[in-house]
């Protein structure tokens, strides 16, 4: 009896951790996409996704359907990402590391403040389109709800779609070429500048999917609501290797599960520190990331 309660608690945490982890993986993927194409670590990524989500989800006030609002959010992310690359990031290519870091950190605080100025800092709660009551198994909750299942499926679908786009389409081929060998790509007539803009647009759209998922349900939508998950996403990307989308996803799930267990068995205040320790340990084991194939990396 005690064993079964214990087992169900572990299962609960595991499923809850995976649910949170796929979203962390999505944030990590979004970071990796930008890193691969432009070698900028986008510190404003979470804030940009949050902002896009506000643009879409405040349309609920105009009695639009949840799905329409979600779609607007993703489209807003796409536009915001592309515009950001054009205006803020383009002048920074080839500059010292610190320049893009500072600009993106400035953009992060600017976006959060503008969001608070327009929509106030009070969280808005968005009803999930599916029930968030856990499925029952033998009268005990499983840690997985229909909405959580939707989160997992949505996150994995977005990741799979991104992977397919990059692997099998003409656009993906050009995006990869622009990232790997921009000069060669230009010599072959590839409009590299446009593709870098598109890369930022796609990445921010992916980030917006994560932000829509996070903002729906208990967490709520507020200007700083992506900060924690952004940091977890960065840790996942760094552990997985900023060159490896699959690694970033896997690392995201691991971090989600570990943090869930820390929350449940210790204290939620320690989760952030555990993340830092995970990062340190993984970097000490393998500085180039745990899932990258080739050892060389521009760290």
């Amino acid at each position: 009896m005690i064993a079964s309660i214990f087992a169900s608690r572990i299962l609960n945490d595991l499923l809850g951790g995976i649910t949170a982890g796929v979203v962390i993986g999505l944030v990590a993927l979004s970071l990796v996409l930008i890193w691969q194409s432009t070698h900028v670590l986008n510190f404003a990524q979470g804030a940009m996704a949050m902002f896009a989500t506000y643009i879409g989800m405040t349309q609920l006030d105009h009695h639009l359907n949840y799905w329409v609002c979600a779609l607007i959010s993703v489209a807003a992310g796409f536009v915001l990402g592309g515009a950001t690359e054009r205006v803020l990031v383009r002048p920074l290519y080839g500059k010292a590391d610190i320049n893009p870091i500072v600009v993106m950190v400035g953009f992060l605080s600017l976006l959060e403040a503008i969001a608070a100025a327009i929509w106030s800092g009070t969280p808005r709660f968005i009803d999930p389109p599916f029930s968030s009551i856990f499925f029952q198994s033998d009268g005990a909750p499983t840690g997985l709800s229909p909405f959580a299942l939707f989160q997992i499926i949505a996150a994995i679908s977005v990741m799979a779609a991104t992977a397919l786009l990059f692997r099998f389409t003409k656009l993906g081929l050009q995006l990869r070429a622009s990232a790997l060998a921009p000069e060669v790509a230009r010599l072959l007539g590839v409009r590299v500048n446009r593709l870098l803009t598109l890369g930022w647009a796609l990445s921010t759209a992916v980030g917006a999917v994560a932000a829509v998922i996070i903002s729906t349900g208990d967490t709520g939508l507020y200007p700083a609501n992506m900060e924690t998950v952004f940091i977890a996403g960065f840790i996942a990307a760094a552990i997985g290797g900023l060159e490896s989308p699959g690694g970033a996803l896997l690392a995201g799930v691991v971090i989600g599960v570990v943090m869930q267990f820390v929350n449940d068995y210790f204290n939620s205040g320690y989760a952030g520190f555990v993340g830092v320790i995970l990062l340190i340990v993984s970097l000490l084991i393998r500085p180039q990331g745990l899932f990258t194939k080739n050892a060389q990396r521009r760290v």
């Binding site: 081929l173 070429a177 790997l180 010599l187 590839v190």
Partner: peptide
Amino acid sequence: RGVIAEFTVEENLRLGALAS
């Protein structure tokens, strides 16, 4: 030569044809 080492032979060739 500027061959993209991470691409397959066919991907390299396809890349050459995309802009035309």
